[in-house]
Amino acid sequence: MNKYFLYTARFALLLLFQVLILNNVLIGGYINPFIYVLFIMLLPFNIRPWLLLIIGFLLGYTVDIFSSTSGLHAGATVLMAFVRPTIVRLTTGARDPEGSLNPGISDMGARWFFTYSIVMVLIHHTALFFLEVFSFTQLPSTLLRILLSTLFSELLIMMIMLFFGKNRR
């Protein structure tokens, strides 16, 4: 019960932060940070893979509704949810994380979380910006947007984790 409340609250807070504040942020013409994906990253290790996909779709689609887009954020987030188990396996090496651990800084360490999250953010942003442009014609500017936005989102995500991450246990 308590756990579900935590996840619901986190979902709502990240969503509102994204659509009310970050969707209006544009730095230097290229940087749009998207941090709502943090929700997918923080779901427990032992979550059922199919549930991960469904949650990814719901989260992405909710952001879509608020951004007047259709299927854009949903597509990128579903892809990210799909690769999450692989990324977890690759970043944790041979040892499989125990069911009781959560993919946060307090359980796994800041260094692990940084690697894990930047790969996830990069995958999400790459899918997102390419889906948005829907062509490869503006390749250099799209790549620049992906790179800069990924770095900025990652910065925000690490800040959020360092501020709030410890208290969660």
Binding site: I54, F57, T69, G71, V78, F82, F134
Partner: peptide, 21 residues
Amino acid sequence: HFVLLFLLLESLCVYLLSNSH
């Protein structure tokens, strides 16, 4: 089921997206 569900959801998204274009 994991891969199938992924393909299903992703094609749904692309369908929605291309329809909005």
